[in-house]
Write a protein that binds this DNA or RNA. Structure first.
Lengths: 135, 135
DNA sequence: GCTTGAGTTGACGTTTACGTCAACGTTAAG
DNA sequence: CTTAACGTTGACGTAAACGTCAACTCAAGC
């Protein structure tokens, strides 16, 4: 049997407002993501009820946004989380191939980011150099 | 003295169409970036003439876009390339501080990207596992 | 000298990702 | 019982980053 605190860790749910506050977004954004098919929280009557799975999914979504993924790209990925449990060989093979492409794309972005980071560091070095040459 | 081929490497210029083709964007985008103050090509009459510096700047801009930087963020960085040659101590110090913040932001994006990449790899691993369990 | 291709400047349209009301239901406090 | 705080669904507005005409110029080729 699980303790009360342990249960509270996995059974906890959130309202839109609570989750929006915790994630640093607005309730409008949460409703928008739902309308776009990115999340599908449970309902208590008409009120949305988010659980840990929804919250994890949203963290993934927001992380993707931070380095430039569009919502449709993100939707494709989060859909794959569900699809990976498929039992159809053909389906899994298609998924795996697509995941490979997505991985390639992400690695390309990683290179672009790293390169920009190096250039920013270089400009900073130039600044320091010039500062050293001043009185 | 420099050879003819060497001179052609650094003296070459481009028209909007040529440069757009080479960079894989449209002429509209180039004009838009100019209107936004991101580039300022020379003019031959009314026609735009891009040189190597313009081209390098555009590569930087496009690279930034690929991992989610907005045009205003990018403009701030490209402006710093020019500002780093300043001779005012105060100006250089401000620049350096801002460059530090930008670096921090970029590293945060790098972490988000890496984390997403790991998760994508994990989903791929799940796919392969399920495939192995099938006939 | 006239068409064709590439350039120019407006000006309005479009997509993405939400912001911002408006109008309404529901539960908790006073 | 009514007000206040939260929730709900529309519906319209907006900023960013271009796309898409339209109307015009200008140099090159036939």
């Amino acid at each position: 049997m699980t303790s009360a605190t342990e249960a509270s860790r996995t059974d906890r749910t959130w309202t839109v407002g609570e989750l929006a506050d915790e994630l640093g977004i607005t309730t409008r954004t949460l409703r928008f993501y739902e309308a776009e098919g990115l999340i599908a929280p449970a309902r208590a009557g008409s009120a949305r009820v988010y659980d840990h799975r929804d919250r994890a999914r949203l963290r993934l979504i927001l992380r993707g946004k931070r380095f430039g993924m569009s919502l449709s790209e993100i939707r494709e990925i989060v859909d794959m989380y569900d699809g990976a449990a498929s039992s159809e060989r053909r389906q899994l093979e298609i998924l795996l191939a697509r995941l490979g492409e997505i991985g390639e794309d992400l690695r390309a972005r990683e290179r672009d980011l790293a390169r920009t980071l190096r250039e920013v560091a270089e400009v900073a070095a130039q600044c320091r150099e010039r500062l050293d040459q001043l009185p």
